[in-house]
Design a protein around this nucleic acid. Sequence first.
RNA 1: CGCGGGGUGGAGCAGCCCGGUAGCUCGCGAGGCUCAUAACCUCGAGGUCGCAGGUUCGAAUCCUGUCCCCGCCA
Length: 677
Amino acid sequence: MNQRRILVTAALPYANGPIHMGHLVEYIQTDIWVRFQKLRGHNCTFVCADDTHGTAIMISAKKAGISEEEWIEKIRQQHIESFNGFDIQFDNYGSTNSPENKELCHQFWTKLKEADIVIEKDVTQLYDCEAETYLADRFVHGTCPYCKSENQYGDNCDKCGHTYSPTDLIDPVSTLSGSTPEIRTAAHLFVQLEKFHDFLNEWTQDGNHLQKEVANYLKGHFLGEPLRDWDISRPGPYFGFEIPDSPNNFWYVWFDAPIGYIASTKQWCDKNNENFDEIWKNPETEIHHFIGKDITYFHTLFWPAMLKTAEFNLPTKVHIHGFLTVGGEKMSKTKGTFINADMYRKHLNPAWLRYYYASKLGSRLDDIDLNLDEFVNKINSDLIGKVINLASRTAKFMKGESLTAEYPDDGGLFEHAAKQGEQIAASYENCDYNSAMREIMLLADRANKYVEDNAPWTLKKDPDRKNELHQICTVSLNLFRQLVIYLSPVLPELAEQTGELLGQPVEHWDESQKPLLNITVNKFKHMMKRIDSQKVEDMIEESKVPDETEAPQFNDSSEPLEKEPLEAENCNFDEFMKIDLRVARVVEAKEVEESNKLLQLTLSLGGDNNFNVFAGIKGVYNPEDLLGKLVVCCANLEPRKMRFGVSEGMVLAAGAGGKEIYILNPDEGAKPGHRVH
RNA sequence: CGCGGGGUGGAGCAGCCCGGUAGCUCGCGAGGCUCAUAACCUCGAGGUCGCAGGUUCGAAUCCUGUCCCCGCCA
């Protein structure tokens, strides 16, 4: 096989917080791919770095009362430790705030200028005078200029969906200082991406550089119209690199971040005496980027354009994955499903997560779900019950004994599994780890059946059949080792342990093709524990934090009151008490066919005390949703004859009407029939 | 008709490109084994492959229509 020269990158984590389970999808996915390539004998280098520039870093450092440099170094160390804990093995882990990166940014910049695609334009932005910084969209809140919803972000409104510029916001507030920002104008530098349109059309659609759905997406969303100029500078103060020919302007973090891939490679080359140009300038070298779907367009439009201009290799492939959900939902701090890498490690074994992710990951950019029950189940049944069990049920019969000198007849099991190797390798290559894992487990099933059918435990009892026993165990342990080799990109530690058991380290994929013979089997040590689901629960429990963003803020709008001002005359106590308000249960609810507003409700005050009410809430509430609910009603309202029957009361609801109707619910504990005083 | 993805036994998925008796894992039921970390093996129940048409000797698979779900700071 020809040895391929491959450079692999994973996205640079932002130096603003710890690594969490969502990040790990990518780093585990990438690490598996890299380990696979290395196991196949290819010359593969895996680089990454911390992404360290930008306003958010400045703010965090300021809050922590330390310099930006101190801050990013601290975070970088944390990141490295988390990655180590998950067996994610970078060949180099750099930082975008490095001399190598600065130097490369200059190189790129020179080329962009030479290509005459940089222009200057004025940008009007909000400026926080207290924090002395321009405000990115997400650092401004205010009232939506379209629907007047309060407390909306600077770029679009949650409520009405309109997009706008932060300068359009009514009553803008800086989230940094709480002060009112002022509008300032500054010159920014832009790259005219449109000049690359033809090139990008071709690069994104041909050559298999992108997954098909990504190519389609780009075609429909960006490439269908002129590409907008890309703003790549920020006026100071800004933590980053100052642009050489544009004093007090800094490269935007997204300009220098991808260049960080190259800078990290450069660092690695310098440390290991490798030829840098062989990697980034020789088109024979494959460049593979692994990223999440959120940063697709930086990597599929700007980045290829920059590389082309600077005359570096273009990516061979950008592998894009989806997001992680936990239990089918977005990770949530309040629910304890926002789990940090270190928290996971405190409770659970990283190898389990590596296997679980592998069993879920395919080559497409679908989101993957971490279902905790499935997680426990899969690990216990696949890894412990099938794979490791194979060794633990046979190895101890062979402790200190030697495997046979010739490979016994196993009915073609080993050969079959060896043949499957190419299939499994193809799945790894294509990032279809899920199908690779499926294949491997199928092989594990066959192997276990072999042990079952040949019952070595019976042979063990008869000293005359020792030879037979050795044969059975030679087969079993070889089948086990074969599986471990196939799994080793996912489970490097298991491969190591197996190497120790059999006195022969796992070093190359092709070792799966030939049985190991005539070697002494060492004492079997437990290789992996099964998951105690209690530990998973403990982890969730400990991850729960009160969510600051969901903390009550009590900044209610005055709008409802303005719509319906306090105009009613005062009433005295007796007048108030004339109205008999009761808690009632909805025991029946149905739509009134002929009416477009009415639901017919049967309310119960307990016992047989039912009465009929028509409520104008059709279209707002579904009858089935109301069934069983407690409501507050006026029980002594004069019955009123309506077109559809007699209404004997009224259900209390708040709101302006139309779709804005909110039925009042009594607090927990109230019972049908209770009077409201 | 915005774009993309998807709807297959209780759950999660494969099969669809290249039509030919519907498969895997888990769960469930019965039995077996007892070497192994309550594991493993065998057998079984359970699906009109979203719905409706069409092509075909034959459709989960191809075509058309339709409904529903999800994502589109991919």
